[in-house]
Nucleic acid binder design. Structure first.
Ligand SMILES: NC(=O)c1ccc[n+]([C@@H]2O[C@H](COP(=O)([O-])OP(=O)(O)OC[C@H]3O[C@@H](n4cnc5c(N)ncnc54)[C@H](O)[C@@H]3O)[C@@H](O)[C@H]2O)c1
Ligand SMILES: NC(=O)c1ccc[n+]([C@@H]2O[C@H](COP(=O)([O-])OP(=O)(O)OC[C@H]3O[C@@H](n4cnc5c(N)ncnc54)[C@H](O)[C@@H]3O)[C@@H](O)[C@H]2O)c1
Lengths: 190, 190
DNA sequence: TTTCATTTGTGAACATTTTAACAAACTTGA
DNA sequence: TCAAGTTTGTTAAAATGTTCACAAATGAAA
């Protein structure tokens, strides 16, 4: 449910709790850690709350990233329409495969691996999304760290190591499905 | 690091901890909750440990699922090569778009929406992966629940409600990227 | 204004998770 | 067989996270 832009300008922790399946007290406590944004008897101003949260996360200004590896996942990412709404822009895409280089997907040109260093330097980009084959992902991260990248969002289901000053987030798209199987089997409502 | 099938047949909590960045005591405690599989002075037999875990999760036998919505993500899922290694098989795929129906991707035929009820009944499938536009995902889940589906793996970044006896797992592919931005900004090593 | 109904922020109670520490159990090699 | 060296499973302590409950603050209505 989109509660913003629908004639409602404020929201209580009770309502937020109903929407998100989180206990209201928990929501209030969490928000209290980052400041006091609510008014007693009224709730939280939605626009203000969103702005504050986006500022805290750091997605209040557009984040430009590159995609490395334009295979199944990489292509889906390039074709994704909601990047701007989420505060991101895919500034460039790279693949080692000659058959993919030169292709333009959703307005984004796929470049060769060798262009990475100059591209990210010129564009001032620090975050890379990796959708490369699992076997080479760690090597690729090492390489990109050398090129000055500092944030890595990795789709390979492995533990990735990075130098100090660099940060990595992993996503394993299959694990939640395994967990679903487990819950189904054991009737675990969560 | 793949530690199985490499001449090593057992592994200690210390080694598992190094690989996964988890404290050894934590690994031992967690494993102790599901039984006693380790030998003092020796560690855990890798094959046995894997078998036990797969059995507990329920992925020791092949899990057959359907994919609903063959767009960017849906197509990437159909093309994914590692489903068998992970214990899954995509038994069928469905889309409402006539242009996608009939297409065969990675050996899987894309069928029309209307075929879902008979297909899942005949094939005895209970789990659906939804890669549909965010706006219609909840509706689609309701529909599939009517058709007898009991597990839903949802790619839309929204809270999904299901009837009792049904289970849902969500994956928001963008949130981890937002968190990466936050960590980068605040130098949070995790 | 004043009253009534809401809703926040938080201190304290309660619950869960993580960590450290170590006796007991096992392997290995002599 | 025995002694030395590992590593487990578990207990208890410490740390972290969640929930309750309520005074204080605010908005809305009269
Ligand atoms: N496809 C899925 O649905 C899916 C599901 C779960 C996990 N994953 C994981 O996501 C990752 C990517 O999967 P995929 O299915 O998109 O793989 P893919 O094989 O379709 O794509 C990999 C791409 O990386 C490119 N590449 C290879 N080496 C490169 C290099 N050195 N530099 C730049 N590009 C290079 C390849 O040319 C290819 O285009 C894998 O780790 C996979 O396990 C994918
Ligand atoms: N593409 C990405 O990289 C990405 C990233 C993050 C989140 N997501 C989320 O994943 C979901 C799917 O995204 P996408 O990019 O694959 O979307 P998409 O628009 O490319 O694909 C959606 C598919 O669903 C089909 N569809 C529509 N209505 C249907 C119906 N009633 N029954 C069956 N099929 C129907 C469409 O024909 C289309 O093929 C969305 O919720 C999106 O927010 C996607």
């Amino acid at each position: 449910m989109k509660i913003s832009r629908s004639g409602v300008f404020h929201v209580s922790s009770a309502v937020l709790g109903r929407i998100t399946n989180v206990k209201p007290a928990n929501i209030r406590k969490d928000l209290s850690y980052v400041g006091e944004y609510g008014k007693p008897g009224y709730g939280y101003e939605i626009d203000k709350l969103l702005a504050v949260i986006e500022k805290i996360i750091g997605i209040n200004k557009l984040q430009r990233v590159i995609v490395v590896g334009v295979g199944n996942i990489g292509e889906a990412l390039l074709s994704y329409q909601d990047w701007p709404a989420r505060g991101f822009e895919i500034a460039g895409a790279f693949d080692k495969d000659k058959r993919k280089m030169g292709r333009v997907i959703n307005g984004i040109e796929v470049r060769g691996n060798s262009e990475v260093p100059s591209f990210v330097k010129k564009e001032g980009i620090e975050i890379a999304i990796l959708a490369t084959p699992t076997e080479i992902t760690q090597l690729k991260v090492n390489e990109l760290a050398q090129d000055g990248m500092r944030g890595f969002y990795v789709f390979s289901p492995i533990v990735i190591n990075v130098p100090v000053g660099c940060y990595v987030e992993n996503i394993d798209m299959i694990s939640p499905l395994e967990f679903l199987v487990y819950r189904l089997k054991n009737k675990i409502s969560k």
